[in-house]
């Protein structure tokens, strides 16, 4: 019984680390622009395909697929910002109050576009990426893990830590945080606010795509594979407090563990529905999230 629980805990934390990789990008965009990117799941999907096709079509070794996924995700994120997000920053006075709506519709349409484009170009059938390692099972204390999961988790965790350090200490990271706090103030201090947005979108796309690449050998990739990781990230950013990085990391791990235990002790069929229950309870009881500040209204 105890070993089962340890197993569940470990698996929950592992899933949580992939969720965190997804959710950080989403929460960064929210922190900067106060919008939700509904095409975030498609960044994941693009990464999963980039990883898989790099190995299957280009014949690259499996590990080389990860930087490819990272780069393709960064490119898609950057292009999204360049082509679609610019109107949000300034001007467009006539539809000032419609800012949220513009962002929702444009990103939702982008998600439809990417899904159907990939469906048309690559095809609707599922593909499975090559594993990073051949080792089938690695005992880690009392827990048995597949080699792929262990390696992928280590990469995910290191990337999360690197990202957090980047945002906290690097010059670009400081600029991004300044823009998130006060866009006008930051631009007066000489910070290129548009560049900060570009960096955030590229980073967000790259992280989601990396998450897709890491999970491609475990979960079958189809054009609509992104919808679930995306919905999990939405739950996480609400739970962790929109815009808060430590909050979203903690919320990811909590959600991963809850789902892992819930699937065994409550119901396997409805494991994906726990997120909604959590989401609604949080919105009712604590809309600012577990770690978020209470919103200030003008």
């Amino acid at each position: 019984m105890l070993s089962l629980n340890i197993d569940l805990l470990a698996n929950g934390l592992i899933m949580g680390s992939f969720y965190a990789l997804m959710a950080i990008g989403l929460t960064l965009i929210f922190g900067l622009l106060q919008i939700v990117n509904f095409a975030h799941g498609e960044f994941y999907m693009v990464g999963a395909y980039a990883y898989t096709l790099a190995a299957l079509k280009l014949g690259l070794p499996a590990w080389a697929g990860l930087p490819v996924a990272f780069a393709v995700g960064a490119l898609v994120g950057w292009l999204t910002e360049r082509t679609l997000m610019r109107p949000l920053y300034a001007g467009y006075r006539s539809w000032g109050p419609m800012k949220d709506e513009y962002a929702i519709v444009v990103t939702f349409a982008l998600s439809l576009l990417l899904i159907n484009l990939v469906d048309k170009v690559i095809g609707p059938y599922a593909v499975l990426g090559p594993g990073l390692v051949d080792v089938a099972r690695i005992p880690l204390g009392p827990v048995m893990l597949t080699g792929q999961k262990l390696i992928a988790t280590i990469i995910a965790f290191s990337t999360i830590i690197a990202t957090a350090l980047f945002i906290r200490y690097s010059l670009w990271g400081r600029q991004i945080r300044a823009v998130a706090q006060n866009r006008l103030g930051a631009s007066l201090a000489g910070i290129d606010t548009t560049k900060a947005s570009s960096i955030i979108f590229a980073l967000s796309g790259a992280l989601a795509a990396l998450s897709g690449g890491l999970l491609a050998p475990i979960i079958n990739t189809t054009p609509d594979v992104g919808s679930f990781p995306a919905i999990k990230s939405y739950v996480i950013v609400v739970l962790g407090g929109m815009g808060s990085i430590p909050g979203s990391i903690a919320a990811s791990l909590i959600l991963g563990v809850l789902e892992s235990f819930g699937a065994v002790y409550i119901s396997y069929d409805y494991r994906d529905a726990f997120g909604l229950v959590i989401l609604i309870v949080v919105l009712l009881v604590r809309p600012q999230g577990l770690f978020g500040e209470k919103g200030r209204e003008v």
Binding site: F30, Q34, I35, V36, F38, D100, A103, I104, I231, Y234, V235, V238, G275, L276, L279, I280, L283, P287
Partner: peptide, 10 residues
Amino acid sequence: GPYLALTTLS
């Protein structure tokens, strides 16, 4: 803001 879209989507 975006909470409505998020919640209805989920």
